[in-house]
Design a protein around this nucleic acid. Sequence first.
DNA 1: AATGAATGAGAATTCATTCAT
DNA 2: AATGAATGAATTCTCATTCAT
Lengths: 196, 196, 196, 196
Amino acid sequence: MKLTKISAIRRKELRQAAFQVLQQEGMAGATLEKVAAHAGASKGIVLHYFRNKQELFEHAMREANLVLSEAVSARLRQATTPYERLEAIIDGNFEARFFQPSICHAWLSLCAEVPREPQLARIQTVIHARMRSNLMSALVHLLPRAECEEVALTITALIDGLWLRAGLQSGGLSRDTALAQMRDYLDHRLPFQPTV
Amino acid sequence: MKLTKISAIRRKELRQAAFQVLQQEGMAGATLEKVAAHAGASKGIVLHYFRNKQELFEHAMREANLVLSEAVSARLRQATTPYERLEAIIDGNFEARFFQPSICHAWLSLCAEVPREPQLARIQTVIHARMRSNLMSALVHLLPRAECEEVALTITALIDGLWLRAGLQSGGLSRDTALAQMRDYLDHRLPFQPTV
Amino acid sequence: MKLTKISAIRRKELRQAAFQVLQQEGMAGATLEKVAAHAGASKGIVLHYFRNKQELFEHAMREANLVLSEAVSARLRQATTPYERLEAIIDGNFEARFFQPSICHAWLSLCAEVPREPQLARIQTVIHARMRSNLMSALVHLLPRAECEEVALTITALIDGLWLRAGLQSGGLSRDTALAQMRDYLDHRLPFQPTV
Amino acid sequence: MKLTKISAIRRKELRQAAFQVLQQEGMAGATLEKVAAHAGASKGIVLHYFRNKQELFEHAMREANLVLSEAVSARLRQATTPYERLEAIIDGNFEARFFQPSICHAWLSLCAEVPREPQLARIQTVIHARMRSNLMSALVHLLPRAECEEVALTITALIDGLWLRAGLQSGGLSRDTALAQMRDYLDHRLPFQPTV
DNA sequence: AATGAATGAGAATTCATTCAT
DNA sequence: AATGAATGAATTCTCATTCAT
């Protein structure tokens, strides 16, 4: 590994701080100074570790996604049946520590930058690709091939839509409601699952 | 009407210009100068008509929503059956002139500001309330009361999720695919509709 | 004229201020803030009138050259014989108000940027072209065509070398010495001029 | 010698690297980091060997001058007649390895700092003093005492002016042209040299 | 109503320099 | 000797906003 230990630690601290500031301030308010302050460091150090602001938030997005996708992966590892795999994906995406207004808002802020920032767009593509692949690995056992893509896309859109709503912080969409939404959709769209 | 005719015209030009700049530049790039230039006016005039930048984009959001909700209303006026009402709402929300990457991106940019801008939050609340009310007026005739709220929320989340995806501009989500998604959901969730 | 009167005035003030700061501080020390302060204006106004620092100093160079070349032109207008024309060029380039250590230093600072700044390079090219053209218009009457180019180049190099030396501010090269140098060269290089 | 051998080597590497960076980037772009990178070392080491940036470039200037003045000295050692001595000085100053646009530009960048940096001014003074002394040792045998100073100064100014022009990189002043200029001047200014 | 001049706050970024290891 | 972590000052540049005309 090229990076020194301390540099790896600092970089992680900073990208986490960046994401936290994003939660509180949105992208416009997320200045390097605030990120530095949040990490208990000086302004200069941020650009010592990241070439510029974009790179910092790119890594912040990657990091946030990593945590989320590891939550899903961990659950997937326990799952055996297709239904369990679907449940793992959904439960992972709505874990209490993730599905919070401020975190959803941070994601929303990042997504709003995607069309202007090729790097973020790349990450977004990867995120969607992984989601699709995870979903497909379960759906192919439950539905005719032709319908799998469609359902995978609907599930993704539904998750995104619920996260967006949570990010708007207006309705006060609860985690339970969101999960109920997901389950209701699957109950009606997938063939009957005898024992769950 | 208090406002002179010319002032009303100018204000409309400016809020439309604001929304168009938002499409091209995102919120960060949407400066008052660009909005003015886009409207063929001088920088100073923007703040002559709007107290500040926030107010301008608040009106831009209102205007954009107005166009969208009128498209839905027009269709609703033609609809007679509950199924037609649902179709009106969905078709309105995915009209070709609205469901475009750049427009979805502009909305996404506005949504990302909602948690920091009470005025935008208020508009967002109104938008969702109207959507819910429109949907409920159809759903109550098709489903048991207890399920209506849930389905209305799912439809809204699905629409939002599909718009978000379009705004991300990566997948290249076509209008037809989006509509197919919506119809597939309704087909499975609502009771069979004998003749359409 | 597109520019308003006040804008033209301000721009002139600023490019003159820029050149004066250059005299005192060199390019590295010539910050926009100092230029603004020197012109008795706010920092922001500088970039209201000039797109960026480069553009400001580009105009400062142009302005400084304009003054210099007008001094030469004025003298040329009085000159009738080739010898007088040569004298006009030289005297113009060594006028007391120009040939001062700080001004020579400012020019030196600009020249040092020429290889990195295409705009400055362009101006430099124009300056040299004009100098050559002025010199040639006199020399062709005094020397065989083949030698004119060479002598014009030597005169230019000599002027530049003397300015450079003045800019270095070490030797304390006086204006009289510089003029004597020039005359000594011409006396030996040009054919004898019967009456001056 | 106080300095360890390795330290002497490093210092030389660094001042050469400094001069090379100056060639490519000019003074504004010549950061310690680039110098370090150019020398294949870390940023910290530069200020381990030189108290600060000024000192580094002071040594860079000294080093560059040393190479140049040794080239002249070597040629002077072969020279026997006054004319040969003059030729040695001129040929040394226009050796192909020195008289290159980028090197002239580096010198120009250093000269532009002279008025602000007493250390550089001191070096500049030494350089000019040596040039004068070298020239005088030849000229006193060729011209009346009263004219020697003047001609020495003209030769120096001419060399400087030609170097400056080469540094501007616009005209594309060739080495041959520069040498021809020098010779043409001497041919006309010095008494006829019977056999060369 | 309209222009654009002017301001000043604020942000990103660069860099010399200092220190701990 | 050498590295690179860390700091903070300085600078360019952007922009919303205010004002005079």
